[in-house]
């Protein structure tokens, strides 16, 4: 009940913000009868109606993860965000091994198995991407070998 009500409220508010933001869209002199504002405002209006409907008629609640599971999910999101930032500066191998190992550990909490999965995936996928598919990936941070050469 409460989940759907909150979701409905969030949708309603977001849709209102979307409509408000649509009114701020600049129009050019080369305009058509509809213009760039009308369609987004229609979408927003439909979403507001549906959002209010959900607040009034919510479905039963799903079971949300709690405690350890919730923590595991949050760790996973944090790790993925970190991976997104590190892929370019740190090269492919190291961030991939770490991220894959952590994700593997979250799915099945056995440390050794997770480390092996991380290393294996990192090296295996690198070989596949680089040599079988020919994608331009850097294995290590570029600066590591730049100084030596």
């Amino acid at each position: 009940m409460i989940s759907d009500r909150i979701f409905g409220l969030v949708v309603t508010l977001a849709a209102l913000a979307f409509i408000a933001s649509a009114t701020q869209v600049q129009t050019s002199f080369l305009s058509d009868p509809v213009g760039p504002k009308a369609f987004p405002m229609m979408i927003g209006a439909v979403a507001v109606i549906c959002g209010i409907f959900m607040i009034l008629k919510p479905d039963p609640d799903p079971t949300w993860p709690v405690g350890k599971t919730l923590l595991a999910l949050m760790v996973a999101v944090a790790v993925l965000v970190g991976y997104a930032y590190s892929l370019k500066p740190l090269g492919f191998l190291i961030p991939t091994a770490i991220t894959a190992a952590i994700l593997s550990y979250q799915i099945s909490p056995k440390a050794l198995q997770a480390i092996l999965a991380g290393l294996g995936l990192s090296i295996g996928l690198f070989l596949v991407f680089k040599y079988a598919l020919g994608l331009g990936l850097f294995p290590f941070p570029k600066t590591w070998f730049a100084a030596a050469s």
């Binding site: 892929l87 492919f92 593997s104 799915i107 099945s108 999965a117």
Partner: peptide, 19 residues
């Protein structure tokens, strides 16, 4: 097993979008 497959799927997704 899922503990190899799902991290693998993630990595393929990341590399695909990144490239």
């Amino acid at each position: 097993p899922a503990w190899v497959l799902l991290p693998g799927v993630t990595m393929v997704s990341f590399v695909g979008i990144y490239s």
